[in-house]
Nucleic acid binder design. Structure first.
Length: 271
DNA sequence: TTAATCACCTGAGGGC
DNA sequence: TGCCCTCAGGTGATTA
């Protein structure tokens, strides 16, 4: 399940294979993703050179002279670089075929992902323009998040997962960051002290950096662009560890549902 | 404006 | 072994 580290790992993996390549064809096998893939994409991108592979939040942007492809991996999406002669399998929905014979192939069993095209500034696209700061950017700091949290009654976990507050903190890393910061996930965002927000911002950055370094979290079906799994799962303290002893106090990890998402925490260490 | 809920989708895993 | 059911989860849209 791709979160920000998985998307960044994917970006780094595909970048060297995609930047500078010229699109020969776009083969769409399944138009129905989260939103329909534009049927004119092949015509639009044919003979276009991809000059950049960038990321904003969990969106990947493929830059060309005529506009940007906006890619989202949703819940189960993955991108791989393959020789185009490799037969497509079930759930391989779209190929960006390059002149060198390779292709960028999107697989997405659950089809929560998206492939869109934007001719204008992609950062003004309706999906991107209201997003909060990048978590690893200097603009994401304790003052920013503390100021926005005042009088907010929503749980701190939902708050840090809100992309208008900060992008890229998904369910796994929200649980991990709150554990490291010693904050109970059901605490109201407006009741968390400035000191705790200082710590929380710091551990969010740490968790995401460590996960990127480890190649993401391989849960169920995430693989890197070369097909290898991520290794951050081994470093998770609480996520997916219901009833296992807390790494700090040995009390069993609790699981409950917050905002319709499984949440893991230690009732002893997180207040 | 804020908070909560719904909808989309399919593979994995458990129970029988 | 096969069938059925539940769970998982990112995020925009909808509702309260």
């Amino acid at each position: 399940m791709p979160e920000l580290p998985e998307v960044e790992t994917t970006r780094r993996g595909i970048r060297k294979h995609v930047e500078g390549q010229t699109v020969k064809a776009v083969i769409i096998r399944q138009h129905k993703l989260r939103w329909p893939i534009p049927s004119t994409l092949n015509k639009t991108l044919a003979r276009q050179r991809i000059h950049s592979v960038t990321r904003r939040a969990k969106y990947l942007l493929l830059g060309t002279d005529v506009g940007h492809v906006i890619l989202h991996l949703g819940m189960s999406g993955s991108l791989r670089i393959l020789d185009h002669s490799v037969p497509a399998e079930k759930h391989d929905h779209i190929d960006f075929v390059f002149n060198n014979g390779q292709c960028l192939r999107l697989r997405d069993p659950r089809r929560f992902g998206a492939v869109l095209f934007c001719r204008d500034d992609p950062y003004q696209h309706k999906l991107l323009k209201s997003l909060g700061p990048e978590p690893l950017d200097k603009h994401f700091d304790a003052k920013h998040i503390f100021d926005l949290s005042r009088k907010r009654k929503v749980t701190i976990k939902s708050f840090i997962m809100d992309s208008k507050i900060v992008v890229g903190v998904g369910n796994i890393y929200a649980s991990e960051a709150l554990f490291r910061a010693g904050i109970h996930p059901k605490r109201a965002a407006g009741k968390v002290s400035k000191e705790k927000y200082h710590l929380l911002v710091s551990v969010i950055k740490d968790v995401l950096k460590e996960a990127i370094k480890a190649g993401g979290t391989s849960l169920r079906n995430f693989t890197q662009s070369d097909g290898k799994p991520g290794y951050f799962k081994q470093a998770l303290n609480v996520y997916g560890r219901k009833s296992e002893p807390c790494p700090n106090c040995k009390k069993p990890i609790t699981q409950s549902v917050i905002a319709q998402r499984s949440t893991y925490y230690c009732t002893q260490c997180q207040k």
